[in-house]
Amino acid sequence: MLVLLPPSEGKASSGRGAPLKLESLSLPGLTAAREAVLDELVELCVGDEDKAREVLGLSEGLRGEVAKNVELRTAGARPAGEVYTGVLYDALGLATLDATAKKRAARSLLVFSGLWGAVRVTDRIPSYRCSMGVKLPGLGALGGHWRTAMAAALPEAAGAGLVLDLRSSAYAAAWKPKGELAGRTATVRVLHAPTRKVVSHFNKATKGRIVRSLLSAGISPKGPAELVTALRDLGYEVEAAAPGRAGAAWALDVLVDEVH
């Protein structure tokens, strides 16, 4: 099972250890694309701070994020699973998983990123600010920049099992499973059952709990139909729609009455 996660806007501060080593990150086929984004992002932030804030979509109150990007090559790195914070990651609670579940997380979780493309939770990265929606002056829209490299690297990472796609639309733009791989991919929406509406906070928290439940139970479904059964066995209310055509992903709705 491969679980595709969005990053978080909020990030823990960089570590105090060794700085970033691009060549040590997972999915080495993305290295050249990572280098290109890193080079332009650092150059942008070293230059005109106001322009950098505009390109990155940062408010005046987030001016310090530009300085953070300036130091990307020298700041201490830490595991990505510690860098990403926020609602989904709080609910996932990687630090509180038992040792066996942590090993499953290291194998199964892949976090998408405007800067890194995608990283494992064990990959060591510095804290940064660069969403997938950014359009850099030289490289252009990052979603488009990543597509070619992702198309080559991600099918191998997916292997022969289930792909559980929990990304937001901006990050899904960087890679879309195709063909046979799409047929064993499941996307998930979390709906407030009484209103049938998606609520962002509830959506993120429930997705984090779903991943934690699967990792803690040691469940690794081979395909979407098995995932539906597994989630129901874990106590989730799930409605599933199998794809109506070849090359399309399954769509799962998880219904919740209350989310806390």
Results as ranks from 00 to 15, higher is better:
Ala230His: 06
Ala172Ser: 11
His260Ile: 13
Val198Gln: 05
Pro221Met: 04
Val37Met: 02
Asp123Pro: 01
Asn203Gln: 10
Lys51Cys: 00
Val121Cys: 00
Arg53Pro: 07
Gly143Trp: 08
Arg73Asp: 05
Val46Tyr: 03
Glu258Asn: 12
Arg120Thr: 06
Lys197Arg: 15
Leu234Thr: 11
Gly161Pro: 06
Glu71Trp: 12
Leu22Trp: 10
Thr229Ile: 12
Ser26Glu: 05
Glu180Ile: 13
Ser220Thr: 08
Ala205Tyr: 10
Tyr128Cys: 07
Ser168Tyr: 12
Leu227Ile: 11
Glu239Arg: 14
Thr85Met: 07
Pro137Tyr: 04
Pro155Arg: 05
Lys103Arg: 15
Tyr236Ser: 03
Ala157Asp: 01
Ala149Gly: 04
Leu215Met: 03
Ala149Met: 01
Lys135Ala: 14
Trp250His: 05
Val199Thr: 12
Ser213Thr: 10
Glu35Thr: 15
Arg78Val: 05
Ala36Phe: 07
Asp50Gly: 08
Lys204Met: 02
Leu110Glu: 00
Gly47Glu: 09
Val87Leu: 12
Ala91Ser: 07
Gly17Asp: 04
Ala170Trp: 03
Leu234Glu: 05
Glu49Phe: 08
Pro194Ser: 08
Trp175Tyr: 13
Gly93Cys: 12
Val134Ser: 01
Glu49Lys: 14
Lys135Val: 14
Asn69Cys: 07
Ala12Val: 14
Leu162Asp: 01
Phe202Tyr: 15
Gly244Ala: 10
Asp165Pro: 00
Gly93Glu: 09
Leu88Asn: 00
Lys207Gly: 00
Pro79Tyr: 05
Gly140Lys: 04
Ala230Val: 09
Arg167Glu: 00
Arg107Ile: 10
Ala52Ile: 09
Leu97Met: 08
Gly114Asp: 00
Ser220Glu: 13
Ala230Glu: 03
Val83Trp: 05
Pro243Lys: 13
Asp233Ile: 12
Thr185Ala: 00
Val228Tyr: 08
Glu43Arg: 15
Val199Asn: 12
Ala95Thr: 13
Arg245Ile: 09
Ala151Arg: 08
Gly133Cys: 07
Val190Pro: 06
Ala172Trp: 08
Gly114Asn: 02
Ala67Gln: 14
Arg73Ala: 10
Pro224Gln: 02
Ala106Thr: 14
Gly61Pro: 09
Gly81Thr: 00
Ala217Gly: 09
Leu27Trp: 01
Leu136Asn: 01
Lys68Ser: 08
Ser213Tyr: 06
Glu237Thr: 15
Glu40Leu: 11
Ala186Pro: 03
Ala246Glu: 13
Ala106Gly: 15
Cys45Gln: 04
Arg147His: 04
Met132Gln: 09
Cys45Gly: 06
Ala242Thr: 05
Gly218Ala: 07
Val87Met: 06
